[in-house]
């Protein structure tokens, strides 16, 4: 290799230092701009609904819970309502109370043994299946689990 003269060495060293400084700005800068884009996936967030023994066998019970949604630096509180159903006190299922037709709230009518939507007379069975009326599909189901007698729901799925 030919010996490098002083001028060439200083010129290359200057470029190398400038590049290092440039990278020092660019790497954190790009990470900073892109970081809100990375969404946490894989871990479902479980929301406490209430005591499992509040649910009568065969009768859907409505649970309401407040959830805080955070987007950036703004937090908003929203209320979630979930009908929890069990047929044996061990297996629990959670259904949205939002009608799949046009988004009205359905309610459980005990003496008819069905969910009823007052807007357009949509009817769902105890397991969320469409029985009558315009709804295009059954009630949305959320994953539910019971731990230490408390019901948890995940709204992620």
């Amino acid at each position: 290799m030919a010996p490098m003269d002083r001028r060439k060495f200083l010129s290359r060293a200057t470029v190398a230092i400038a590049a290092a400084i440039g990278i020092g700005w660019a790497v954190p800068g790009v990470a900073y701009v892109l970081s809100p884009a990375k969404k946490k996936t894989g871990e479902a967030e479980w929301i406490v609904l209430g005591a499992a023994d509040r649910v009568d066998i065969g009768t859907p019970s409505l649970f309401k819970a407040k959830v805080t949604k955070t987007s950036g630096w703004v937090s908003t509180e929203a209320e979630v309502a979930v009908y929890v159903v069990t047929h044996d006190g061990r297996e629990f299922r959670g259904f949205s109370n939002v009608c799949t037709h046009l988004g009205c709230r359905v309610r459980w009518v005990a003496d008819q043994n069905e969910f009823f939507c007052p807007c357009h007379n949509g009817v769902f069975s105890v397991d969320g299946q469409v029985v009558a009326g315009p709804p295009p599909r059954g009630l949305d189901e959320f994953p539910v689990k019971v731990e230490d007698g408390q019901i948890f729901v995940s709204l992620e799925a």
Partner: peptide
Amino acid sequence: DLTAGWLI
């Protein structure tokens, strides 16, 4: 909350 935000 942001990656490298403290640094910037």
